[in-house]
Design a binder for these strands. Structure first.
Length: 264
DNA sequence: ATTGTGGCCTGCCCGC
DNA sequence: TGCGGGCAGGCCACAA
């Protein structure tokens, strides 16, 4: 489920876990670790230390430690964060919608008895010690128009043949936008997901405005799934703007809904 | 180097 | 009611 808005909620929740000495660390199995991160290495890195800061870059959450490596958390499609029994979100749209002990994949227990845990039914999330943050592009919540333009450069003169939507979701170019947000942003920017020609200055401005307004609006409304396009994301869905039947197709490897009447 | 594809896991929903 | 197939908002390894 989580896109950038959800991970930002997780990050805010994780601030409750700062400055509390870590007593135990558990992970379901070493396949849940990434980049050589195993349960024993997690223990060595974390036990006896505290988390000092909860950061985020795109969809990657980062917990710094006092003197040890930073812990990176990725939530995949169904991952959720729980601190001291409190969830950042009531409900995971593509998960079972309830909390289940059997879906807990990792747990950090503090000396005060509290816990921070990863709840992840589908197991697409992961933990990684000292993740390479530099592989991610600028954060979508704060990206400037200039940096967005650089990230989106497409077309023959810019050496890329990837469709616009794939660019928007390429985490190395722009960090944080997932499939749902991409559709919503392009719909609001009036740009077709399959666009491969360079964007004009006006279109880039539209895209930047749509990115900011969509993130701000959906953040207020409670998450990435609160977009206006969401309710029409099904067969026979219609454009909320002009009533045109939406096109459903795969763009950039992901299911895409868009309006052929006003997105160009 | 860039772009596209399959696969990872598990649960839900739909149609038969 | 039960069952099988298709689908799911992320990301990686791999092929072309």
């Amino acid at each position: 489920m989580p896109e950038i808005l959800e991970v930002e909620l997780y990050r805010a929740l994780a601030e409750q876990a700062l400055d509390r000495p870590i007593e135990r660390v558990w992970m379901v199995d070493s396949r849940y670790g990434r980049g050589g991160t195993t349960a024993p290495r997690l223990r060595t890195a974390l036990v006896g230390r505290t988390f000092t800061e909860a950061r985020r870059r795109g969809k990657l959450m980062l917990l710094d430690t006092d003197g040890g490596p930073t812990l990176g958390l990725r939530f995949g499609m169904t991952g959720g964060l729980v601190v001291d029994g409190h969830e950042a979100l009531d409900r995971l749209r593509y998960g079972p919608g309830v909390f289940g002990e059997k879906w807990v994949r990792a747990r950090v227990t503090f000396e005060d008895g509290g816990t921070l845990l990863m709840h992840d039914p589908r197991r697409f999330g992961s933990l990684e010690l000292a993740p390479d943050e530099t592989r991610l592009g600028p954060d979508a919540l704060t990206v400037s128009r200039r940096d967005l333009a650089a990230a989106m450069a497409i077309g023959p003169r810019h050496g890329s043949a990837a469709p616009l939507k794939a660019r928007l979701m390429d985490q190395e170019r722009l960090a944080g936008v997932g499939n749902l947000l991409a559709d919503e942003i392009l719909w609001r920017a009036r740009l077709a997901p399959g666009r491969r020609t360079p964007l004009s200055d006006e279109e880039l401005a539209e895209l930047h405005t749509a990115l900011r307004s969509t993130l701000r609006r959906l953040s207020r409304r409670g998450g990435s799934h609160m977009g206006e396009l969401m309710a029409e994301r099904h067969d026979d869905g219609h454009c909320p703007l002009d009533g045109t039947p939406l096109v459903r197709e795969v763009v950039g490897g992901r299911t895409t809904y868009w309006c052929p009447a006003h997105q160009h």
